[in-house]
């Protein structure tokens, strides 16, 4: 599904990603962990197509297509979704309008009929339940004045509506209390299908109790320094990252 090969990328002329390789197959859940500033969000944004990140080398293919050649909206239409670490506020654009616009773009790309506002409301009624949000939030401007938890839930709501084939969650668990964490995790799990994959970027092992990963990767200083099964997350929880960094430093 997603194949990243020796990807390097710069931000503001500084190299952040220093050769990432990663393969995600259909149905798999991958967790990416690592210290602050190691490049996790950069990787997520590069996959989503943020123009501010300059890819300097390597390849990324998604379902056989060259992803790096596509505009961000085309990637989304192809089935990629990024739940932002810092969701953006858009005052003046209602959540309802925004979601329906996105939903219809993605339907169009899949060759499906667009839906009108009434039909869309039916879709939303179902999806809102997943994140335990009320219709009232549809009338609010996108993320404007939302609490941290509301913003994260809104990301999951969008994901539930757009039903991506590859969802990347960038620290969606940060700053959530245990209830919100459960809601987010259930949202992700409900979406799970053999043909859909998820990349979970997280700081904490606790999310992985709910979203059980098939693989865990440790990203540090722009490189994946260790990959393993879900037990690696537990080990990191216990021992932190330092022991890995030392090994990585020694081998570099």
């Amino acid at each position: 599904m997603l194949k990243i090969d020796n990807l390097t990328a710069n931000v503001a002329d500084k190299q952040i990603l220093k050769g990432i390789s990663l393969a995600v197959n259909p149905g798999e859940v991958h967790a990416i962990m690592g210290p602050n500033g190691s490049g996790k969000s950069t990787l997520a944004q590069v996959i989503a197509g943020h123009p501010g990140y300059e890819v300097t080398g390597g390849t990324v293919t998604f379902e056989g297509q060259d992803l790096l050649d596509m505009d961000a909206e085309v990637r989304a239409q192809a089935g990629i979704f990024l739940a932002f670490q810092y969701p953006v506020e858009i005052p003046g654009v209602s959540n309802a309008y925004f979601l329906r616009a996105a939903y219809n773009e993605i339907r169009k790309a899949r060759g499906e009929e667009e839906v009108d506002p009434m039909e869309f409301l039916d879709v939303m009624t179902e999806k809102l339940k997943i994140v335990e949000m009320t219709e009232e939030m549809l009338q609010r401007s996108v993320n404007a004045g939302f609490s941290g938890g509301e913003k994260k839930r809104n990301e999951i709501l969008q994901m539930a509506v757009l039903e991506p084939t590859l969802a990347i969650l960038d620290e969606t668990d940060s700053g959530l209390d245990i209830d919100a964490l459960r809601i987010v995790a259930e949202g992700v799990n409900k979406l799970k299908r053999p043909d859909r994959s998820t990349i979970v970027v997280t700081h904490y092992q606790r999310l992985l109790n709910y979203i059980v990963p098939d693989y865990v990767h440790v990203l540090a200083q722009g490189r994946i320094i260790r990959s393993g099964g879900k037990e690696l997350a537990l080990e990191l929880e216990e021992r932190g990252y330092d022991w890995l960094l030392d090994t990585a430093g020694a081998s570099a």
Partner: peptide, 9 residues
């Protein structure tokens, strides 16, 4: 970018 990342041109 946020909008584009949701498929909106």
């Amino acid at each position: 970018f946020y909008m584009k990342s949701r498929g909106i041109g």
